[in-house]
Design a protein around this nucleic acid. Sequence first.
DNA 1: GCCAACGTTGGC
DNA 2: GCCAACGTTGGC
Length: 148
Amino acid sequence: MNYWLMKSEPNVYSINDLAQEKQTIWEGVRNYQARNFLRQMQLEDLAFFYHSHTKNPGIVGLMKIVKNNLADPTQFDPNNQYYDPKSTSESPRWQTVLVEFVQIFPEIITLSKLKQEFSEEQLLVIKKGNRLSVMPIEKKIAEKILTF
DNA sequence: GCCAACGTTGGC
DNA sequence: GCCAACGTTGGC
């Protein structure tokens, strides 16, 4: 079982939206490094939900991968902002996962708290200038975060 | 809202 | 293949 961190801007899609919907397809990732991580995700993997580009960024909850290796449907929709005319249904360029809500943490684990607890090598998300929206988290680090 | 940092694009 | 120009991300 692997652990991941996935970013979303809460004014676009927040942990509360996921708590209501219960499941969502993680659409719109158009960065190859992030996509490669999405491709590696396995059923039952856990992912931390991170709120970015907001007043109080940090980890706000937990979700579970319930379907992996899905073609991102938005790549085929010409009216969608994530439409990719170079992608075909025979060989989709962008894969993603279906995630399921697990929990909202009682308190946000803020970026500044994460910076206090971990080094940049231990936790990529705290590295300045990091723009990756999907990244792996080492098991030991993830288990420590779960105790906060 | 600002702007540093980064990824992508495209001319050469 | 290099790299300047550009667009986007995301902390502050």
